[in-house]
Design a protein around this nucleic acid. Structure first.
Length: 568
RNA sequence: CGGGAUGUGGCGCAGCUUGGCCUAGCGCGCUUGCCUUGGGAGCAAGAGGACGGGGGUUCAAAUCCCCCCAUCCCGACCA
């Protein structure tokens, strides 16, 4: 390919509306252009990267026995109503009507469609297990699309669904996908880690996320440097620490805390540690208000709380509601004598002795509050958000924390959808049984962005070899120098003829421009043909990642390049 | 959804406070020519926008007012 004929619109300046590095660089380097918020054109370079990632994904899915198909993007509402998600999915579902007024949606995921397909076509245990997948656009009307390709409203995703006879079969399918995903991201050249995760809206039980490490990531994970444990903080369990006090419970009493509302204000006013305070947070659920209690220095994990309460909705109550329920200004709510609300306490809270809480009275707190004596929780559970430094739930050593980008997730769905949609098969005894399902997604475009997020420097993108749009760019220093152009052409033809993905930068630009663009675009190898090369017969090969340069005779260039890109 | 900000040629911006020297300016990019060629050169001549959209105020609006749209950021309450 000749650069003079390629659509690679590089920009010298950072686009004003791009915040994160991957977004900025992908726009600047001519890979993507925005069509609307969260909706992008993938230009030729980006499409090449996408195809490479897709190829890796296809190979690994197929290796595990996956069969590729294509399902509709436009999906009828009836299936979603049948699964119950038409109402549950919420505003993220792009909804539309046809000319007859019938409801449809743009598929954010395909459990309904595939379950419908399989229930109609698969009837016998002999046809199971089945692994079906597709790679196509997905649509989610995100409340806030941002970060370029990292959180778009239209994006490319691979989704695979497994159908098994039983949970043992599902376990095998799940492990296959775990292996496949690990191989996919390894082959993409990314630094990542599978972590235990929460199953969120899709439902189901066991699930892992594949997290690419990157500072801009929206996911916070903790992992143990000593054992294999790794989890999304939303999921990570947090065993209570050991009781450190042998204090005797003292009598409950009130203390005036005028104007002190926050944990910091109250504890500093009383001259004590936040660990002695019980923080009371009111949540509103479809089953009424709930007071959630954690130690003053902890945070509530709303995902855990929602799960433990077994509610669909769980939001922090607004301030007027807090005032109404506690009968005091916000900041003075406490579990003691709090009428009419359910109380959910974190495990750690139950170990506290002579704690401080709000007294449900303006400017007043209680001292010497003792859980069990002064109030009785309706629910005691692990409710707190894990932090780096907390003990590993497996080996008890301190956990490390990091940010990352979720590029894949695998779920065990069980019979959630097969039951809702009646996807059953006949077993050996002729008995109908629900298929046991799993679903497994990889964000293709997000993986591309994550790769940039993880692999760049101040000059531009540094593509991992496996997913680079091209392997090599050949840069003649002067397009007016006939000898250089001849030699550059020769090198280009040699490489192209040998199947190397190579671009000849034949644009009539000054060398600086071509070098800058080469760095920005992130070609793994740059071959420079200047006067030195013409005279010595050796061209300069420079590695984008390291800046390391080698002089290679033209006769050897194909072998040399092929060795680097690993195709020999 | 709430809050904030922005919207001026392909990109980045200035002009708006104190309407009229703006039938709009600068840098980059683009076109043509000359010149230059190892890290985004230089000179010259050009093309390209009626200022997000609509409505108002005014003798006069990119500048003031109203509505709408779009984009970006922050937040969604840790009491």
């Amino acid at each position: 390919m000749r650069a003079s004929q390629l659509l690679i619109p590089t920009l010298r300046e950072v686009p004003a509306d791009a915040e994160v590095v991957s977004h900025q660089l992908l726009v600047r380097a001519g890979f993507i252009r925005k069509a609307a918020a969260g909706v992008y054109n993938l230009l030729p370079l980006a499409f090449r990267v996408v195809k490479k990632i897709e190829t890796i994904v296809r190979e690994e899915m197929d290796r595990q026995g996956g069969q590729e198909l294509v399902m509709p993007i436009i999906q009828p509402a009836e299936l979603w109503q049948e699964s119950g998600r038409w109402d549950v999915y919420g505003p993220e579902l792009f909804r539309l009507k046809d000319r007859h007024g019938r409801d449809f949606c743009l598929g954010p995921t395909h459990e309904e469609i595939i379950t419908d397909l399989v229930r109609n076509e698969v009837k016998s245990y002999r046809q199971l297990p089945l692994l079906l997948y597709q790679i196509q656009n997905k649509y989610r009307d995100e409340r806030r699309p941002r970060f370029g390709l990292l959180r778009g409203r239209e994006f490319i995703m691979k989704d695979l669904y497994s159908f098994d006879r039983d949970h043992e079969g599902l376990e095998i399918s799940y492990q296959k996908m775990f292996t496949a995903y690990t191989r996919v991201f390894e082959r993409c050249g990314l630094r990542f880690r599978p972590v235990e995760a929460d199953s969120g809206a899709i439902g189901g039980r066991d699930t892992h996320e594949f997290i690419v490490f990157a500072a801009a990531g929206e996911s916070t994970v903790v992992f143990c440097p000593h054992c294999d444990y790794a989890a999304n903080v939303e999921r990570a369990s947090s065993p209570p620490g050991q009781v450190v006090t042998n204090e005797e419970p003292a009598p409950l009493r009130e203390v005036a805390t005028p104007g002190r509302r926050t944990v910091a204000e109250v504890t500093s006013f009383l001259g004590m540690d936040a660990k002695r305070l019980i923080k009371t947070l009111l949540f509103e659920t479809e089953q009424g208000f709930v007071a959630a209690l954690v130690r003053g220095d902890r945070d509530i994990n709303e995902v855990k709380l929602q799960k433990e309460l077994a509610v669909l909705r769980c939001e922090l109550a607004d301030l007027p509601a807090v005032a109404r329920i506690s009968g005091a200004a916000p900041g003075y709510a406490g579990p003691v004598g709090l009428p009419g609300v359910k109380i959910a306490a974190d495990l750690e809270v139950m170990q506290m002795v002579n704690a401080v809480t709000g007294a449900n009275k303006d400017d007043t707190h209680f001292l010497n509050v003792n859980p069990g004596r002064d109030f009785k929780p309706d629910l005691v559970a692990d409710l707190r958000l894990v932090r780096a430094g907390d003990p590993c739930p497996v080996c008890a050593r301190p956990l490390s924390g990091t940010q990352g980008i979720e590029v894949g997730q695998i779920f065990k769905l069980g019979d959630k959808y097969s039951k809702a949609l009646g996807a059953t098969f006949l077993d050996e005894n002729g008995q109908p049984r629900p298929m046991i399902m799993g679903c497994y997604g990889i964000g293709i475009t997000r993986t591309m962005a994550a790769a940039v997020e993880q692999n760049h420097d101040e000059n531009g993108i540094v593509w991992p070899l496996a997913i680079a749009p091209f392997h090599v760019v050949v840069v003649p220093v002067s397009d007016r120098d006939e000898k250089q152009m001849t030699m550059a052409n020769q090198v280009y033809e040699l490489l192209a003829g040998a199947g190397v993905e190579v671009v000849l930068d034949d644009r009539p630009e000054r060398p600086g421009v071509k070098f800058k663009d080469a760095d920005l675009i992130g070609y793994p190898l740059r071959i420079t043909v200047g006067n030195k090369a013409v005279q010595s017969g050796e061209v300069e090969v420079r590695r984008r990642a390291t800046g390391e340069t080698t002089f290679v005779p033209v006769d050897n260039i194909v072998a040399y390049v092929k060795k680097i890109i690993g195709e020999v």
